[in-house]
Amino acid sequence: MPIIDQPEFRPTSIDDPTAHQLRLLLTLAEELHFGRAARKLYLTQPALSQQIRSLEERLGVALFHRSSRRVELTAAGSAVLPAARNVVDAADELRNIARRMASGSDRLRLGVCESFTALASTRAIIAAVRQRHPELGPDVRVLDRFSDQLAALRTGEIDAAFAHFPMPEDLHCEPLTVEPRLACIAGDDPLADRSSLRLADLAEHRVISLVSPTFRAGHDFWSVNPRPDGSQVRYAAHPGASFESLLSSVSLGTAVAFVPAVAAELYPRPDLRYLDVEDLTQCTFGIAWHPGNPMQTKSATLQSVVDAFRRNALSRTQTADRPRWAAFR
């Protein structure tokens, strides 16, 4: 594959890179495709290319290899990514602190994916905050994608998020419940008539996930990669943009998805089957927040509510005859 010649860069300006340019760098490094990155950033492709070129000139190094078919990070590009992330995170935190100080708002802002607003644990936490601390609200924001939750947490747009784990290590996580994971397959799949499966039965199926490969721990967990025998999974051509789009892709027979058991109750569809997988581990649902959140009183309040929920939920599971899933122990 021919590589388009890369010019030798020398710094042309003593100006530091802008946080905006570094944000563009991080997005392009995630997508490795100018068109997709530009659409995600609401830019034209030429504008994004010009900004990346300007950043390279400021730094004096080429950050990407560009070919006629693909874009790849150079060694220098890979080396600067951690520092670029730190700068962007610091800029986001600065903006968030200033925004909060300007607004004077102490209301608790919670994020939740639309798919799981019906979960009892989610609704119980929100209700408990409203009852015990009505001055905190809370304000609830519905976020369609896992990546949107992470971005909102890191920029301070929300104080905490309800999500299925794992979450990145820079976030504080409090588990609420555990439940099985199921295999979601097309209704006309040859395996659809089975009562249960093993992972080996799905070895030839491609996998679709909502979690970006840039968050490796989460991506591997929800695609079950590698498999117990050490084999690597094959992925669908396109990742899911939302939970609904993921289910639609599965229904068309293009992939299998591993989903929380509650999805079978929230999204029953005649073109899908949800099957137990005997050697598939459970998943955990909980709440996460950034430990760098400057509003420590809100974090302490949220922690106390979560602790109370877990005590009550554990008490219920100890007395229930057949709980569907258990509180986290």
Rank of each mutant, 00 (worst) to 15 (best):
H172N: 10
C173P: 00
T177W: 01
L176A: 07
A183Q: 03
E179H: 07
E179Y: 05
D193A: 15
S195G: 13
I185E: 01
A203S: 15
A192E: 06
I208R: 03
L182T: 03
L171E: 10
D170T: 11
T177R: 14
D170M: 08
H205K: 11
L171H: 08
V211H: 13
R194G: 05
R198C: 15
P190Q: 11
P175K: 07
V178K: 06
S196E: 15
L182C: 01
I185T: 01
L191H: 01
A186T: 07
D189W: 06
V178L: 04
L199A: 06
A192S: 14
S209A: 15
C184Y: 00
L176D: 10
I208W: 04
L199H: 10
E179C: 11
G187P: 07
G187C: 08
V207T: 13
D193S: 15
C173G: 11
R206V: 02
V211G: 00
V178Y: 02
D189G: 11
E204I: 04
A192F: 03
A183Y: 00
D189S: 15
A183L: 05
L182Q: 05
H205L: 04
D188Q: 15
E179W: 05
L202T: 09
P175G: 04
R194T: 08
R181D: 01
A203C: 09
A200V: 13
R206A: 13
D188G: 06
A186Y: 03
L191P: 05
D189K: 07
V207W: 09
P175S: 07
L199Q: 14
S209W: 04
L197H: 09
D170G: 03
C184H: 01
L202S: 04
H205S: 12
D188P: 03
P175H: 03
A200D: 14
A200F: 00
L176W: 05
L199P: 07
C173H: 10
V178I: 12
L191K: 03
V207G: 03
I208C: 09
D170V: 07
